[in-house]
Design a protein around this nucleic acid. Structure first.
Lengths: 223, 223
DNA sequence: GATTGTGGGATTGTTGAACGATTCTACGAT
DNA sequence: ATCGTAGAATCGTTCAACAATCCCACAATC
């Protein structure tokens, strides 16, 4: 009975701070609040009609998700990933996603399908010259890869990681267009997986990370 | 100039909430506050002489670290890991640590030494029948393995992971004695690494995880 | 006897105001 | 141009209050 679980999730969403945090997260990820911007407690709190204490609680939630950074007595800012952040990001992705991909032969069909499907969709869209959601398709592909590990905490951590990566894309002024470059890579990886050559797929993924990291770092504007 | 960086870290530690959180974390990890216990805002805040708002901020910090769990309108509780939590914990460790260990030949000597040293110390202590800090030595070993990845975010996430594991040990009524069983395994892994047979070391680590997970889950008392 | 209302009491969620501490800004001195 | 300083703006923390929610015990019902 999935409806009950869904209802429970809705009920738990009662917290005001949670709602404020969700709204702010969306605003940041959509680019309405750009990296480096300072979020004034008074201004935001006043505009949203919540008290400072509640707003600060929302800030804390987003700080945990690395969406915001907190500087003592200075306030909170939209995170602005540096080159070093991107390097760290990809070092983590290499370990997590390559490690997860190596489990390909040990996981359920549903898990494998979660990797294949996003690429299939992206290919279908690309053939119709529809590049609208190519970015989220790419992320879905990698989210599927992480899912092979079968660890909720790892998937959650990866979601935070992808969110931070989005911020880096924004700093690099590359949001949607950026991803579609890597569709051929994803196709190749799935192809290698279907052929049963898992280790080659892992190597391909590793090379993808090399290219993506270098590309992103080079486009990162210092300020 | 490491002293400057250290001073900076000290200065940034000014926040009251941070200090309260550190104190509570230590209390929990030392076992003075056992898993499942509810932490009353009034009681704790009164005892520590901080306001409810500040205490709630400390609670948020510890919730992010998975030390505490927050239930809406019910309060915060010391996390009490379930069997499913432990399973998830080890699924994550398998991917992260095995993936990191495979980088053995690509990392600096200092990073490799951070893996070897804890085992050497543990062996030296064991030969003197000193099993005092065998638990932290084991954790240092695995922390070193994660460090091979060279990602601060991965190391941080692993620290949170180890903290949660500590809580699981406590639920299983196995804190210090638990670890020393696995010293031989660690020795074997380092030995295989020194022989240059990295892939065998990874396999050995994987088997260690199987054994440790099974052992811990079986000792976990339901309630 | 087991289940289902129904209170009151305790605790959390949220707000608003207040004040000291820290940072930022702009202006003027050297 | 650099430095120092005063004032403004903002953050950190506390306090008090009230609404919302949960918990527990007791009564009502079948």
């Amino acid at each position: 009975m999935s409806t009950l679980a869904q209802n429970k999730a809705d009920l738990e969403r009662a917290s005001t701070a949670q709602k404020v945090a969700d709204m702010l997260r969306e605003r940041v990820l959509l680019g309405e609040l750009e990296p480096g911007l300072r979020l004034s407690e008074e201004a935001i709190g006043g505009a949203l009609g919540v008290s400072r204490n509640t707003l600060r609680e929302a800030f804390r939630l987003l700080t945990r998700d690395r969406i915001l950074v907190h500087e003592h007595s200075r306030g909170v800012f939209v995170r602005r990933p540096t080159g070093e952040d991107v390097r760290d990001l990809y070092a983590a992705r290499r370990v997590i996603e390559c490690g997860a991909l190596r489990l390909w032969n040990d996981v359920s069909d549903a898990q494998r399908e979660a990797v294949r499907a996003p690429v299939r969709q992206a290919v279908a869209r690309a053939e119709k010259n529809d590049f609208s959601r190519t970015g989220s398709a790419n992320i879905q592909f990698h989210r599927g890869i992480v899912g092979l590990a079968g660890s909720a905490r790892l998937s959650d951590e990866s979601d935070r990681l992808f969110a931070e990566l989005m911020l880096a894309f924004r700093v690099a002024h590359e949001v949607e267009a950026f991803h579609q470059t890597y569709l051929p890579w994803n196709r190749k990886i799935v192809e290698l997986l279907n052929n049963g050559t898992v280790e080659q797929a892992v190597q391909q993924l590793d090379e993808y990370f090399d290219a993506a990291e270098q590309d992103l770092v080079s486009r990162l504007v210092a300020d």
